[in-house]
Measured scan of single mutants.
Amino acid sequence: TTIHVGDLTLKYDNPKKAYEIAKKLAKKYNLTVTIKNGKITVT
């Protein structure tokens, strides 16, 4: 599972963990989490 945050690309083997991290990042920086085709993007 890949999380895209701006220019950063973070890879995680565990999709659930990746989603949790994405949610935390989104909350911290007041951003939105988008999931599309298995890719998690924080914008």
Score class of each variant (00 low, 15 high):
T9F: 10
K27Q: 12
K39Y: 14
K17Q: 13
A26G: 04
K16S: 10
L8H: 08
K28I: 08
I21G: 03
T9C: 11
T43I: 12
I3V: 13
T9M: 12
I21P: 00
N37V: 06
H4Q: 15
H4M: 11
T34A: 09
G6C: 11
N14V: 05
K11Q: 13
K23N: 11
K28H: 07
I3D: 02
A18F: 07
K36R: 13
I3M: 05
I40W: 04
V42N: 01
Y29L: 06
T9Y: 08
L31M: 14
D7P: 10
L25A: 01
N14T: 11
G38S: 05
I35G: 01
N37G: 12
K36D: 13
E20A: 13
Y29W: 08
V33E: 00
T41C: 07
V33Q: 00
K17Y: 12
K28F: 08
A18E: 01
L25M: 06
H4A: 07
T41D: 05
T41L: 13
L31N: 01
L10N: 03
T1Y: 11
G38C: 04
N14K: 04
Y19F: 12
T32A: 10
D13Y: 08
K23A: 10
L31D: 00
V5Y: 11
K27T: 09
K36N: 13
Y29P: 01
T9G: 04
I40A: 01
Y19K: 07
V5I: 15
N37E: 12
A18L: 08
G38Y: 04
I35W: 06
D13E: 11
Y19H: 08
D13V: 06
K36E: 15
I35A: 03
K39D: 13
N30S: 07
I35R: 03
N14L: 05
K24V: 10
I21R: 05
K16V: 11
N30F: 06
K39S: 14
K28Q: 07
A18N: 02
I40H: 02
A22F: 09
L10E: 04
P15M: 14
T2W: 06
K16R: 13
L8A: 05
G6I: 08
N14A: 03
K28M: 09
A18C: 11
I21L: 08
K24I: 14
A18K: 01
L25R: 00
V42A: 03
I3R: 00
Y12S: 04
A26C: 13
Y29K: 03
V33L: 14
K16Y: 13
L31I: 06
T43M: 12
K27Y: 09
A22W: 10
E20G: 05
L8C: 12
I21A: 14
K39G: 07
I40E: 02
L25H: 01
L31V: 06
N14Q: 05
T41K: 05
K36G: 12
D7E: 13
Y12L: 08
K24L: 14
K27E: 14
T2Y: 09
A22V: 08
L31K: 02
E20I: 11
A26S: 05
T2A: 07
K11T: 15
N14P: 03
N14W: 10
P15C: 11
V5N: 04
K24M: 14
V33G: 00
L25Q: 01
K27V: 09
G6H: 09
T32M: 09
P15E: 10
L10Q: 04
G6F: 13
T32I: 14
T1P: 06
P15V: 12
E20Q: 12
T41R: 04
L10Y: 07
K28S: 02
N14H: 06
D13M: 08
K28L: 09
T2E: 11
V5C: 09
K24G: 07
